[in-house]
Simulated scan of single mutants.
Amino acid sequence: MPLPRILIIEDDKPTASKYARVLKQLGECTIVKSSPKVFYQLLLSNPQVILLDIELKGDPIFKSKKAGIRILEKLRELPPPYRHTSVIVVTGNREPEIETRCRQLGITDFFVKSAYSIHELRNSVTRSLERWEQKQREQKQQEQERRRKEFPTVILFLAASPLDATQIGWYQEFHDMHQALQRAEFGNQFDIWSFGEIRPSDLQTCLQKYRPEIVHFSGHGSKSGEIILEKRGGESHPVPVEALSKLFSILGGKVRCVVLNACYSEPQAQAIAKHVECVIGMSGEIYDGAAISFATAFYQALGFGNDVKTAFELGCVQIDLDRLDEPDKPKLIALNNDPATIVFTE
């Protein structure tokens, strides 16, 4: 995760350098000393906190002694998110009307250089960044809730292509699936979240965070039926069949369909089907072209309002239409449900 960005507006070089040394552990610091560079850096990096001196000597645009006030006024006229940036004023000007005007313009804190400690300044910046991080979390949560309401069906696309295995075209698979849903009549009722280089620890996080109705895996499978994820260093990590099945028994409450678009994944599909309405696995080795053709047609059919059984059959037919000679590899498993009754569109 990138560091927060702190913009230091200070014309005295030793003072600006001192701020940067103290604050470098909190965020990436950039120093500017005049208004033209202020607005350039503001638009370039969108800082989370600004340290602002009021008296910027020789400013080429705001030639008054109180150029910092004019910068602050212009900042508050900008569109979001720039106008909402946290500003901490550190100035040598002790005039009460200066502090009053700054507070009217919504600053976070006001320090007089001759009467503050550097630790107080650091604490103020820390609090500002904590508020920003909290707001980011709240906005992300609101966006997820909005998307859940706007897109009734969440598809979680997980992919792994370990460095020590043949590289697969999961990027192309995701692209073609996404395009197929966009072309479909009800494609706007699906929301796809995609994640590559999946490690075992990511599975629980993704299932709990995104609460999908459909989970799609693109990657390799072993001849013993295990899907292959990645270790931290990128090497292959086979996932035990029963372990993955147990994960879906615990966290698969909203999951209605699982697609394991990986070689030899039928045993894993059989195990997961004990806990999920329907699961698709591959009965043997399947090549990239056939896997992508199947997935593209399958999701396009769902996007046109078809049930899972029909979508599955259309996926198999597409492999035949593309002359890829593997239409019998995908297997649809539904132990306790009729896939002809499972529809994801309204």
Rank of each mutant, 00 (worst) to 15 (best):
W170E: 02
W170C: 03
W170Q: 02
Y171F: 01
Y171L: 07
E173H: 06
H175C: 14
H175E: 15
H175K: 12
M177W: 01
M177P: 00
M177L: 15
H178M: 11
H178S: 15
Q179V: 07
Q182N: 13
Q182F: 10
Q182I: 14
R183Y: 13
R183K: 13
R183L: 15
E185D: 15
E185M: 12
F186P: 02
G187L: 11
N188S: 14
F190A: 06
I192Q: 11
W193S: 07
S194L: 12
F195H: 11
E197A: 15
E197Y: 10
E197N: 15
E197I: 05
P200M: 14
L203V: 15
T205C: 03
T205S: 01
C206T: 02
L207K: 06
L207P: 06
Q208Y: 03
Y210W: 10
R211A: 13
R211N: 11
P212N: 08
P212V: 12
P212Y: 14
P212C: 11
E213P: 03
V215E: 03
H216T: 05
F217V: 07
S218F: 02
S218A: 15
G221A: 05
G221S: 00
G221K: 03
S222I: 13
S222A: 15
G225M: 09
G225L: 02
G225P: 01
G225R: 04
G225S: 03
E226D: 08
I227M: 14
E230C: 10
R232V: 09
R232W: 06
G234T: 03
G234R: 05
